[in-house]
Structures are given as C-alpha cells and as structure tokens.
Write a protein that binds this DNA or RNA. Structure first.
Lengths: 156, 156
DNA sequence: AATGAAAAGTAATTCCA
DNA sequence: TGGAATTACTTTTCATT
C-alpha cells in the first residue's frame, strides 16, 4: 500500500527516458515505450500539470562553474524556534542548495556549495545570524562520488 | 583566483535559463542573453563537450512516483577499507541517490530514498553487507524544505 | 486515452562575413 | 567566432476511434 503514486508503468518509462535525456523527442520516447508521439505528448503534459515533472532542466557539473566546495551543515534551533520560520531565510542564501528538516540531534540539514572552502565561514555566519538558529556543525565533503544521477524507477 | 571555471558570463546566463526550463528554444534563450540562435546552439554544444552541461534532464517530484521517504546514512569504514572500493558497491543500490566521501567521524555520506520508512532497514542491511563497511548512522528526513532548485549563478 | 495526419514552430546545417 | 538562410525535424493540434 503505497500512497501518492500518480504514475503507471508507461509513465515510469517516459520519466526514465527523459531523466536520461530531457531533450529526446516524443517520437523517440514513443518508439521506446510503445506509444505514438501524440500519446507521449499527452502524458508528459499531464505529468507536468500534476506536478510529477516539476520542470525540464539541465544537470550542470558544479566544478566547471566554480563551485568547488561542498559541505553539509547541520543546524540546531533555539528552544522556541520553528523550522518553518528558519527555512525561508535559508532559501534566500544562494549557497544553500538543499534543505531538509531532520530527526535527531539537529533540526535541519543543509547542503551548501561555495567556490572554495574558505567561503564556508561567511555562509556559517549568515546562517548563525538567522533568528532561532542556536548552533551548527559542518561536515566537509572531500569528494562527491556520485550525485544527480538520472532517475531510475522500478518497472521502467 | 578560482580554478576550473570553464564558463563566461554569457554561458552562465544560458545555464541559468536552461536550468529553469531545459526546453526553452535557442531562439528564446538567445533573445534573453543577446545572442543569435546559432551562437547559443554553438555554446550549448561546447558546454556539453566540455562536460559543463552533463545532460538535459527533468526534475521529478519523488513523492509522486512513490518515493516518500528520505534519509542520510553516514558510513564508517573498517581500518583498511577505502572509499573507492565501497563507493562502486553503493552505486549499485538504486536507493542510494547520492554519495559523498566526507571528513570527520564518518567516511561516507549517502542520501537514500525509499518508498517507505520501513524500507530503510533493508537498505541498511545491504550497505552493511558491503566489505569494508564498519557501521552506519542514519538521519531521518522529516520534511524536505527545498532541493533540486534551478541553478543560480552569480553574474547570470 | 490513443492514433494518424496536417499545420506550426524549432533546431541543425551550411555557408558567408 | 558569430550571423543568415536553408533544410530537416519535432511539437502541437485536431478529427477520429
């Protein structure tokens, strides 16, 4: 019993195909999944409407655009502070690429990317300046083994 | 002095435009950045060749395809084990979406996504079965505030 | 929902500056 | 390296099943 699944096996195949190459034509995708061009078009349109596909995009290698440093910053709140007050402030920081509220010793976990390790200090100062943030602990990434992999869905 | 930057300000604008909508036509992007269709085409082609753009893709909402649970799993190696031996094994696990070698108490940090919280147990067993893995600590994601944001580059 | 075919729009190619 | 024009392809729409 899995909730929220809004796709069937054909949709999964389409998502996998477009995840590998978002510019493949509907005709080509259709040949792969056994559907006409128009049918693929219709399904993609509906998946966009339902929010299954958030957007078409590109995968960019961070190092090639000067983002050479990555760290995970765990954030603990003050007693009264709520994640929902702090999260919007963290979203404003361009170095914070990803934010999750988490269970455990810390309340939030941020993925931070900067040009250089030395830039983390300034980001931490910005984070600590947000009302409700009590303390942070940073885990420095030495090497990203893999990330941003094309989506792989079972049954696709 | 920033190393590895392979893009100029116009490339940055192109990457930002395609990061927001990977299907915008080259003509449209060209109008935005002040270049002809062919010039944009040429620059995109070169960025693909240089590996700046890894691929065209789509952003999919994990919940809509049944991936409702996320956790970060920190992994510690045995004394003699190397990340480069363990990483390929973790890549084989479809639930492991992202893997970084990190500094600190643990050696690797994996982002794991499964249909349900209960599925984490099986993934942890698979991870612990990899030779060289000594122990793991999991941080459960309660809510993803944001992730998968369109790329924003300074000067774009 | 899916198909096939026509119309509209876009991209790749070629060549010129 | 960038722009213009041609050719080829892809998307989109629509009538039909």
């Amino acid at each position: 019993m899995q909730a929220n699944i809004q796709t069937d096996a054909i949709d999964a195949k389409i998502l996998t195909a477009l995840g590998e190459d978002g510019r493949r034509s509907y005709a080509e995708v259709g040949a792969d999944v056994g559907l006409s061009t128009a049918a693929v078009h219709e399904r993609v349109k509906k998946m966009l409407e339902r929010g299954v596909i958030r957007r078409f995009s590109i995968s960019v290698d961070p190092h090639t655009v000067g983002l050479n440093f990555t760290a995970f910053v765990a954030i603990r709140n003050d007693g009264g502070a709520h994640c929902r007050d702090i999260a919007p402030r963290l979203r404003e920081l361009p170095s914070v690429q990803e934010l999750h509220s988490v269970a455990g010793e810390y309340d939030l976990l941020a993925k931070v990317r900067t040009p250089h390790a030395r830039d983390l200090e300034a980001v931490l100062l910005q984070i600590k300046a947000i009302p409700g943030v009590a303390r942070t602990t940073s885990t420095v990434v030495l090497n990203t083994e893999f990330e941003d992999q094309p989506l792989r869905l079972p049954g696709a």
